[in-house]
Every structure is written in C-alpha cells, then in structure tokens.
C-alpha cells in the first residue's frame, strides 16, 4: 500500500496561516511542536510534518477502510532532511520527503517500497477538476497500456483504483493535489 501528499508552498503561504492561534495545537503533539519551535525554518518544518501525516494517513485509511480527521493522533519523528517515521495506532511507517522551493512532497509505502514511482506535475494555475486524464496519459506510457482502456475510479472512501479494460488492476495508486501541483505515486504488485 502507498500514500502521498504534496504541499504547494506558494499556495500555502497565501491560504494557510500556521501561526494562527490554536492551529498548531489542533494538528501537532508536544514533541512535534518542539521540533517546530527548534527549527530554523519553521514554515517548512510545519508543512513537512503535515505532509508526512497526510501521506501516512492516506495509507492508513486504505488499510483500515475508514475515514476520520484527527491529525494530532498521528505522531511524527524526523530522522533526517528526507526520512521520517510516522506512528498511527502503535504502528510505525517510514516516510520520505522532498522539500524544494516550490513544494514539499512526502510519501510512504508498505511492502512495495522498491517499486514505487512518483510523478510531480506542475500546472500553471491551481488544479481544478479532471486531472485524472493527465494521470491516465502518464500511466498509459509507463505501463504500455492503451490509454482508452484505462480508468481511475474512486471508492466510497475516496481511494483511487486503477482499471484496465473494466478490470481492477493490482496497482496501488495514490493521488495528491494542492494549489498548482499534482502528484501521483503508483506501484505494481507483481
């Protein structure tokens, strides 16, 4: 299983204020708030931790088949600029984060770490609807499948599943978009 999350930095600067009273308390536990307080780049640290939580939360929803919204029960530790560990319900998940000037992208996977591919797409304007077609284009090339036979269908929980010729495929797919960035990760199971 896989999970990912992208944070558009410019979009976040415009649309979210992490210094707002109560904001950190709603999302981060004491340890995470210490990491943020000690960081020389608090903005980046806040949103890296956030994206780690989101990525692992997505994988978690896939594994338990249930949605909820309680980010502070998801605990993060940072191992390096890239690597981190996120704990949900006593279970640890490794994460990898890419932090650049334009975005922060975090991902996590179980069982398939070697085979996961990630793609980040930059739109010039905020991504609205129908970005599935872009993902289908890319998958068609990567997997050498006929574009017209590819479908992406979301389950009730919002988990995207990949179909070829109306048959569900053994491919994990995780899609994230924020501001003008779209990213998707996928892994074939065999």
């Amino acid at each position: 299983m896989i999970g990912n999350d992208i944070v558009d930095i410019e979009f976040t600067l415009k649309n979210s204020d992490w210094t707002r009273r109560g904001f950190l308390d709603k999302i981060f536990n004491d340890h995470e708030q210490e990491i943020i307080a000690d960081s020389s780049e608090s903005f980046k640290t806040v949103w890296r931790l956030w994206s780690m939580k989101e990525a692992v939360y997505k994988l978690y929803v896939r594994s338990v088949n249930e949605r909820s919204f309680y980010p502070s029960s998801i605990a993060c530790r940072l191992l390096s600029d890239e690597k981190g560990i996120v704990t949900i319900e006593g279970r640890d998940y490794g994460t990898t984060s890419i932090c650049c000037e334009e975005y922060i992208f975090s991902s996590t996977s179980l069982d398939v770490s070697e085979k996961v591919k990630h793609q980040v797409v930059n739109f010039e304007t905020p991504v609205k609807k129908d970005y599935y077609s872009i993902i289908k284009d890319q998958l068609s090339v990567d997997l050498d499948w006929n574009r017209n036979q590819i479908d992406i269908i979301k389950t009730e929980l919002g988990i995207p599943e990949l179909y070829f010729d109306n048959i569900k495929q053994d491919v994990y797919l995780s899609i994230t978009h924020h501001g003008k960035y779209l990213a998707f990760s996928y892994a074939t199971l065999h």
Binding site: T12, N15, S16, G22, E54, F69, Y70, P71
Partner: peptide, 25 residues
C-alpha cells in the same frame, strides 16, 4: 485538509466553544 483545521478554528471562534480532538475527528 489544512483548511479543514481553519474551519474548525473558525467554528470555535464563532460559537465560543472548544472542539476536542474526538469531536474534530
């Protein structure tokens, strides 16, 4: 989802209530 936190904070401010994590869930 980041703005969902803002929605919860705005609700707290508007009604002068505190929303615990279990409720926010």
């Amino acid at each position: 989802s980041a703005n969902l936190v803002d929605v919860v904070l705005d609700i707290e401010d508007k009604y002068d209530i505190e929303i615990d994590n279990d409720s926010m869930d």
